[in-house]
């Protein structure tokens, strides 16, 4: 899966650690999702969408 996490983070000037705090996960988790090494579960994807205030499909897309 492709994602726009890095761009959305940059728009808000959030570090990976900032986003991790908001999602209540580790920084490594954010990095793994952002680099496409790990696809989040549906609940975590919804949480990411809620944090960015955008629908899931605007953040994640199929390869």
């Amino acid at each position: 899966m492709k994602n726009r996490l890095r761009v959305l983070r940059a728009e808000r000037s959030w570090s990976q650690a900032d986003l991790a705090d908001r999602l209540e996960v580790s920084r490594q988790s954010v990095n793994a999702i952002e680099t496409g090494k790990y696809d989040p579960s549906l609940p975590l994807a919804f949480k990411i969408a809620r944090v960015f205030g955008a629908p899931i499909e605007q953040i994640f897309s199929e390869d």
Partner: peptide, 9 residues
């Protein structure tokens, strides 16, 4: 572990 990625690791 609530962090699903750390749990997977």
């Amino acid at each position: 572990e609530k962090d699903e990625f750390m749990r997977m690791r």
